[in-house]
């Protein structure tokens, strides 16, 4: 049997194509400004991409489950604000405080999942509503950008354990986590439920359990993103999360995860997040105003999806081998 390049690229989680796009963009940057990808530069790129990577990680799991999570915008803001409220805490109390921040994210996710599953409501509307609620709470906690992050956290955000920048380390940890998670029964159950709820039920998958896991992970990841944002800027923002909702969905979609559920994975999403991030560098190098980055991101998103749907239509027409 002959395996063409396109079928190879279409295999696994569908991250072949975005990876090619990422390399093309990176290649362009390297051409325009040689030495753009030294270790120091990579660390900077990583640091600026990690917030999006975290949010998009949770979004990937939810989209694989066949849902969508808009509330990550609120959760990110709330986590960043909480992170910046207690600069006075002594070092030892910081871990429980971090656990609390992530716990809040988890609870928000569980609330989403329970409302969606028990009332059989549409994820889009439910998470739109909880986004508003959680962002509102963030605004109540801290009405505007500000606060102070505990010095230890701020230092941590720029630390280099084992000589590796913390953002790079976090990215590696995240990929390790994914390498583990994608092979667990829960990941397969989430895929199954996202692919076809009825078949999943017949295969003894708990539809509510997979929802709780997916939205719970999404909440924790969004909280982690908010925490990381706070350590990078030294302050919290009750509205910053809104900037990440749409890019997170874009990263997921560019990464080859289908909004219809069941397919996709984190490798593609991380690739997608870096594609979105590097467009900024391209725009900078072309000496365009930074707003071209937004336009480019939108255009890439549409082009990737249109290409994908054309390829899919063609492969459907040729039919599965019979």
């Amino acid at each position: 049997m002959k395996r063409s390049l396109s079928s190879l690229l279409g295999r696994t989680d569908g991250w072949g194509m975005p990876l090619v796009v990422l390399f093309i963009i990176a290649g362009l940057i390297e051409l325009m400004r040689p030495g753009s990808f030294g270790l120091e530069q990579l660390a900077l790129i990583c640091a600026s991409a990690m917030i999006l990577v975290f949010v998009a990680t949770g979004e990937t799991i939810v989209v694989m489950r066949g849902g969508i999570d808009l509330s990550v915008g609120g959760t990110l803001s709330l986590a960043s604000v909480i992170s910046a409220t207690r600069a006075d805490l002594p070092g030892l109390d910081l871990l429980p405080w971090l656990a609390l921040i992530l716990g809040v994210g988890f609870l928000i996710g569980v609330a989403n999942a329970l409302i969606i599953s028990l009332l059989k409501l549409q994820p889009f509307l439910v998470t739109l509503a909880t986004w508003s609620i959680v962002e509102g709470i963030a605004l109540i906690v801290q009405p505007s950008e500000g606060g102070t992050v505990p010095p230890v956290w701020f230092a941590w955000g720029y630390s280099r354990p084992f000589g590796i920048p913390i953002s790079v380390l976090l990215l590696m940890l995240l990929m390790l986590w994914w390498a583990w998670f994608r092979r667990t029964r829960m990941a397969n159950s989430i895929r199954a439920a996202g692919s076809n709820e009825r078949s999943a039920y017949l295969n003894r998958v708990s539809l509510m359990g997979t929802n709780i896991a997916a939205y719970g992970i999404s909440g924790v990841m969004a909280a982690l993103a908010g925490f990381f944002y706070a350590t990078q800027t030294g302050a919290g923002s009750p509205v910053v999360g809104a900037q990440y909702v749409l890019p997170a969905i874009a990263a997921v979609v560019i990464g080859g995860t289908s909004l219809a559920g069941g397919r996709g994975g984190l490798t593609g999403t991380i690739t997608g997040a870096f594609i979105l991030n590097l467009t900024g560098t391209v725009v900078f190098l072309l000496k365009l105003t930074s707003y071209w980055q937004i336009v480019a991101q939108g255009a890439i998103l549409v082009l990737v999806v249109i290409t994908g749907s054309i390829v899919e239509a063609r492969s459907e027409r040729s039919g599965a081998d019979r």
Binding site: N188, R191, A192, G194, S195, N196, S199, A200, L202, N203, G262, R263
Partner: peptide, 8 residues
């Protein structure tokens, strides 16, 4: 009607 998960 088949109970297979097409994405696995």
């Amino acid at each position: 009607e088949l109970s297979l998960i097409s994405d696995l």
